[in-house]
Design a protein around this nucleic acid. Structure first.
Lengths: 216, 216
DNA sequence: TAGATTGTTAATCGATTAACAATC
DNA sequence: TAGATTGTTAATCGATTAACAATC
């Protein structure tokens, strides 16, 4: 991966700004200030402007007006384009257990331009099921399915024991972006982009902070 | 909340170290080095030792032996105690939709000492269902259920529109630690601990980095 | 023009990493 | 003792916040 010019945090916050902007009544609100965006996203106004400055320096010129704020439509256009939300991106879902099916159903993916293009599992009872127009395929067909569906990212909800093997196969066929829900540290080449969602880690953290509050 | 002496990142990594230590064959591996822990968790060895130094300074004395490493049993004991994993902690699950039921089923919670003690939903068809020994109750009974189950943390998988109202009610009855899966910024008192898991943000981030890799 | 708000630079803060003396 | 590895301090790195000139 090239040196990250833009911090992960910035990219994440930009997604939040988009959420907020989309909720604004289009007719009534024509401009927003960095302060309004900041309040909505729970951050500092300077943060918002700093975040935007990253996009500016990566092309597209500056898009605010001093004394006025940002044009909502224009800002939304730039931010969604920046995130790639202006086009549909195919997602491969590996693992169609409880979590997998919950994710397949998740509205938030669709609203951000992601489309579940293929679903895989090893359970013969699930293979063949049609989910929202997509037929569940057997994991054995991974390579063939990737060739057909051409996913940009894969979401892994397999058992931990299988996650690494699936990762290796994905890398081999050029799917180098993985969102992993299995609680294992995946080994992948530097060039790959792997993100880990560790639910029990989140809960552990939460509970630790809570306990800390009780006995400060 | 008191000033965070221990970074969130440290607490999260300690959960990873515990995962790794638990997987070690108890009879064969008596000690580990910071380097081994680091490799397993995908971090720097200095990081590991630095992380441990936070626990040391919050009591319990230092627990490594220079030239030897850390005693696995002893380390595991301290780390699990530190995280509160040595006792069972009651979790309240609000929202028993697809994601909620996937979480109810999630093994990782149990293995980290969390027990789903109560489940709530507004759907009359779900209310009354028994899940793993726990009866789904109607959201109207939230206050009563909290009194009975005394949860330390709540997990929210409600629709976005309801998340804030549920949060307010939770705060009112003293449930001040929330893991929120609804993609909204929750407003809560400073003293509360709220963590947000934003799945589509994760995916947005992943996909952004991936696109960046393609056009560097 | 006066008031508001941007874009950017500099200051601050906090976390990661390197280095190394202490010590088994 | 020699080799290994800890615990901690100092150096580095990166992200957040403050400040303010530019400008509508």
């Amino acid at each position: 991966m090239p040196p990250n010019i833009i911090p992960d945090e910035t990219v994440g916050r930009i997604a939040s700004y988009v959420d907020f902007l989309r909720k604004l009544p289009e007719r009534d609100v024509l401009t927003v200030s960095s302060q309004e965006l900041a309040t909505a996203a729970g951050v500092n106004a300077a943060q918002v402007r700093k975040d935007f400055s990253y996009l500016v320096s990566s092309g597209s010129g500056s898009f605010g007006t001093p004394g006025v704020g940002y044009d909502v439509r224009r800002l939304l256009h730039y931010l969604t384009r920046f995130l790639g939300m202006d086009r549909e991106r195919a997602v491969l879902l590996v693992g169609y257990g409880k979590l997998g099916s919950a994710l397949a159903d998740y509205r938030g993916f669709k609203s951000r331009g992601f489309k579940i293009a293929a679903i895989m599992d090893t359970d013969r009872n699930k293979v063949g099921t049609v989910v929202d127009g997509v037929t569940v395929r057997h994991l054995d067909d991974l390579e063939a399915v990737v060739k057909e569906a051409r996913p940009e990212v894969a979401v892994l909800t397999t058992p931990s024991a299988e996650a690494q093997a699936v990762t290796d196969r994905l890398m081999a066929v050029g799917v180098t972006a993985i969102l992993n829900f299995a609680p294992v540290v995946l080994v992948a080449p530097e060039s790959a982009v792997v993100r880990q969602v560790d639910l029990s880690r989140e809960l552990a953290l939460l509970s630790f902070r809570q306990a800390q509050g009780n006995y400060p």
